[in-house]
């Protein structure tokens, strides 16, 4: 997969050379082929996450294995509905992960509240509290869809430059992606 899916790196930001960096590619190749994802199955999407890691559509063939502790994970797959009660713990878990960390929002509930937008206790999307890199739509997404989401995370990883340690298009890694006017007023 070409590493120029996003804009090409700025001059002077590669490790040894100015435009392309073989060292960056090698580092990213190693990183993308050893993703440890946090088992964060909250609801129905969690079952599809289990089955994606299961025998038929095996996430282990991408060498992505699950870890139970956020300290040992670099990808957080938020699979399921996020309630307000859980949102506080989710932020805590996200803060406990070490950089570089990625978030994949799996399913409609994690993307935007999904089926439960009318509910009083559901957080309308996980990107209200943590920044998300890839959104995988579906209710629940098929294992093939989640695998595609993982491959997109791998593409993001390939575009990073070790010198800047910054993802393309992201100015501040800690800012939530979508803030409504009402939230800005708070």
């Amino acid at each position: 997969m070409s590493s120029n899916v996003f804009s090409p790196p700025e001059p002077g930001t590669g490790v040894l050379f100015t435009n392309t960096s073989v060292i960056d590619d090698a580092i990213n190749l190693a990183r993308k082929n050893s993703i440890h994802y946090l088992l964060f199955g909250l609801a129905c999407c969690g079952i599809e996450l289990m089955q994606t890691g299961g025998p038929r559509s095996d996430l282990d063939r991408f060498a992505a294995i699950f870890r139970a502790s956020p300290r040992q994970a670099d990808l957080m797959i938020v699979a399921g509905t996020l309630t307000y009660k859980m949102a506080l713990r989710t932020k805590l878990l996200y803060d406990q992960m070490a950089e570089p960390k990625y978030v994949l929002s799996m399913g409609s509930c994690a993307n935007c509240g999904g089926l439960f937008q009318a509910s009083y206790s559901v957080c309308k999307g996980v990107d209200k509290i943590i920044p998300v890199d890839v959104y995988v739509p579906g209710c629940p997404p098929r294992p093939e869809a989640l695998t595609e989401g993982l491959l997109r995370i791998q593409d993001i990883m390939m575009c990073e430059r070790w010198g800047t340690k910054m993802r393309p298009g992201r100015k501040d890694p800690n800012a939530p992606m979508m803030i409504s006017a009402a939230d800005k007023a708070k």
């Binding site: 609801a43 713990r89 439960f116 559901v122």
Partner: peptide
């Protein structure tokens, strides 16, 4: 409990 309380009984009224 309550970390997955999605208000399904209230949604039944809506």
């Amino acid at each position: 409990i309550g970390y997955l309380h999605r208000g399904l009984e209230k949604i039944g009224e809506l």
